[in-house]
């Protein structure tokens, strides 16, 4: 069953993908980090390689995944994201680790 998931992108990736802050992707099956990123990259090929390595699928070191006020960055990439994300009620926030002083 397809589920509509809301994703909030960092500014640099919004520009690269040519989208606004909040995008909606359709995820088939379990809603996990992997399935959401697969859907994002399918819809916006310009994002390939920017959040995770295109071949190994390993997360880029300074990318983090937040949802429902929790940090899911270090959870297994195939672990289900919260039900609120899967239902589209809460977004998955993709964050570029903070920089500067």
């Amino acid at each position: 069953m397809n589920q509509q998931v809301h994703v909030v992108l960092p500014r640099n990736l919004q520009i690269l993908a040519g989208v606004g802050r909040d995008v909606e992707v359709s995820v088939d099956g379990d809603v996990t980090q992997r399935s959401v990123l697969d859907a994002l990259e399918a819809d916006y090929p310009a994002l390939l390689g920017t959040m995770r390595d295109a071949k190994s699928k390993q997360r880029r070191p300074m990318i983090r995944f937040f949802a429902c006020e929790e940090d899911f960055t270090n959870e297994p990439i195939d672990a289900p994201l919260p039900a609120e994300v899967a239902s589209g009620k809460e977004p998955l926030l993709i964050i570029g680790a903070i920089a500067g002083g």
Binding site: N12, L16, L48, A54
Partner: peptide, 26 residues
């Protein structure tokens, strides 16, 4: 970008518009 890695861009109109092309360097 140190955050988002390598992206390659191509313009076919002298730099007015751009499109992201392949960025896999293996």
């Amino acid at each position: 970008s140190g955050w988002f890695g390598q992206v390659m861009q191509r313009s076919n109109d002298g730099g007015k518009t751009w499109e992201a092309v392949g960025n896999q360097f293996v």
